[in-house]
């Protein structure tokens, strides 16, 4: 994990008792995580009463460095030792390192879940609806008499909150073919999971 010099400077700032007193430090760390994890908490640090007495520029710098460290550490799946060494380089005291590590271990899984949903992927199927119709006639032909299935696949596209639908029709044979292929895929999955 590479952190830029400005972030390391900001971290050092956050570690100094003269700038961020001890009781404010754990709040800072928790806010850094919550600000990323929950949209609604993003601006809370600005209104937080514990930081009102401090220099706002310092708070701002400390906060963004903490956020950068938190997201990079979660991204690279660092363990406690690697983070501790980074923080030691920034001249953190052992208590502050422990405070950070405690919050980090509890919130890391949530951060990773959030990060895994960032990115592009093809539309992800989440549900399927079907309908069985009996096709009797149309305006060119009578006595058609066929069974037709209308299938609708509900997909989620990363980035949009609404589902997109994929619709198509099929006859009984085509549906049998489709279901056969899906069952093959399921069997393949089972075999792999047993390995």
């Amino acid at each position: 994990m590479e952190l830029s010099q400005s972030i390391l400077d900001g971290l050092t700032l956050a570690g100094e008792t003269s700038h961020i007193p001890d009781k404010c430090f754990s709040v800072l760390v928790t806010r850094a995580f919550d600000g990323i994890l929950d949209e609604r908490h993003k601006q809370l640090i600005a209104k937080d009463p514990s930081f009102r007495s401090l220099d706002q520029a310092v708070v701002k710098e400390a906060y963004y460095s903490m956020v950068a460290l938190v997201s990079e550490a979660s991204k690279h799946d660092l363990d406690i030792n690697s983070i501790s060494s980074v923080l030691e380089e920034c001249k953190y005291t052992n208590e502050r390192i422990d405070v950070f590590n405690k919050v980090f271990t509890s919130k890391k899984p949530l951060m990773q879940i959030l990060l895994s949903s960032v990115g592009t992927s093809p539309p992800h199927i989440v549900d399927v609806n079907w309908r069985l119709d009996y096709y009797i006639k149309n305006n060119h032909m009578e006595r058609v008499n066929e069974a037709v299935y209308l299938i609708e696949l509900k997909t989620e596209v990363p980035g949009t909150s609404e589902t997109k639908d994929v619709q198509f029709s099929c006859t009984q044979e085509q549906l049998q073919d489709l279901v056969g292929k899906l069952k093959d895929a399921c069997k393949c999955l089972e075999k792999i999971s047993q390995m």
Binding site: V126, D127, C186
Partner: peptide, 14 residues
Amino acid sequence: QVLQTDPTNLVHLT
């Protein structure tokens, strides 16, 4: 059309 799904949804779909 390229689509994606995870194992749970595949079993549900089937």
